[in-house]
Simulated assay, not measured.
Amino acid sequence: MAFLNAMNISASGLTAQRARLDVISENISNSNITRTESGDPYRRRMVVFEPRTQGSFQEIFNKTAFGGASTQRGVIVSEIVEDESPFKSVYDPTHPDADEDGYVMMPNVDLLKETIDSMEASRAYDANVTAFNAIKAMATKGLEVGR
């Protein structure tokens, strides 16, 4: 049933964007952590997405459109990577982690960037919910035809 495949694709998008929002929330909540277990400031994390199926559009289209086996499609979180951009140096001689010159190394988390990323992830999540509900409505209407 094709509508179930479409629901699975939307559901994979929902799961991926939820994971992205979780990582963004973690970044925001740790934006002032100057010392982790390793002794360095918190390093920003990013989510990397990957398509669930591999192959060109034409290969996937030929498999599914012309009676071939249906392949799982959608998106998955392939990994969560650390941002290697440099830490921010802030002058605060009263901070316990300040160096001899009074500078503290702060996490490489930019709150504006995280806010924009969270808005984007939220919009993508909402779009997947809308697509899922549209598919559900079409399936319901299709079942009503038989009445």
Results as ranks from 00 to 15, higher is better:
residue 2 A to R: 10
residue 4 L to N: 13
residue 6 A to F: 01
residue 6 A to R: 01
residue 8 N to E: 08
residue 14 L to K: 00
residue 16 A to S: 09
residue 18 R to C: 03
residue 20 R to A: 14
residue 20 R to Q: 11
residue 22 D to W: 00
residue 26 E to C: 04
residue 27 N to P: 08
residue 28 I to M: 06
residue 29 S to K: 11
residue 30 N to C: 13
residue 31 S to I: 11
residue 38 S to E: 08
residue 42 Y to F: 15
residue 42 Y to Q: 06
residue 43 R to G: 03
residue 44 R to M: 07
residue 45 R to W: 04
residue 47 V to C: 05
residue 47 V to M: 10
residue 47 V to S: 03
residue 48 V to P: 00
residue 50 E to A: 11
residue 51 P to M: 02
residue 57 F to I: 14
residue 58 Q to M: 12
residue 58 Q to Y: 07
residue 59 E to I: 01
residue 59 E to N: 11
residue 60 I to T: 09
residue 60 I to N: 01
residue 61 F to P: 01
residue 62 N to W: 03
residue 65 A to K: 05
residue 65 A to H: 10
residue 66 F to T: 04
residue 69 A to I: 08
residue 70 S to R: 13
residue 70 S to T: 15
residue 71 T to N: 02
residue 72 Q to G: 08
residue 72 Q to D: 12
residue 73 R to H: 10
residue 75 V to C: 09
residue 76 I to T: 14
residue 78 S to H: 13
residue 79 E to D: 12
residue 80 I to A: 04
residue 80 I to T: 02
residue 83 D to W: 04
residue 83 D to C: 05
residue 83 D to Y: 07
residue 84 E to Q: 14
residue 86 P to K: 07
residue 86 P to N: 08
residue 87 F to L: 07
residue 87 F to M: 14
residue 87 F to H: 07
residue 88 K to H: 15
residue 89 S to T: 09
residue 89 S to Q: 10
residue 90 V to Y: 15
residue 97 D to S: 09
residue 97 D to V: 03
residue 98 A to F: 06
residue 98 A to H: 07
residue 99 D to T: 02
residue 100 E to G: 02
residue 101 D to F: 14
residue 102 G to I: 11
residue 104 V to F: 13
residue 104 V to I: 11
residue 105 M to S: 14
residue 107 P to F: 01
residue 109 V to I: 07
residue 110 D to M: 05
residue 110 D to K: 03
residue 111 L to H: 04
residue 114 E to I: 00
residue 116 I to Q: 02
residue 116 I to C: 04
residue 117 D to K: 03
residue 117 D to N: 13
residue 119 M to E: 12
residue 120 E to Q: 10
residue 120 E to C: 02
residue 121 A to E: 07
residue 123 R to Q: 06
residue 125 Y to M: 00
residue 127 A to H: 13
residue 131 A to T: 14
residue 131 A to N: 10
residue 131 A to V: 14
residue 134 A to V: 13
residue 135 I to F: 15
residue 138 M to N: 04
residue 138 M to V: 05
residue 139 A to V: 11
residue 139 A to R: 08
residue 139 A to P: 02
residue 140 T to C: 05
residue 140 T to G: 12
residue 143 L to G: 06
residue 145 V to R: 14
residue 147 R to I: 12
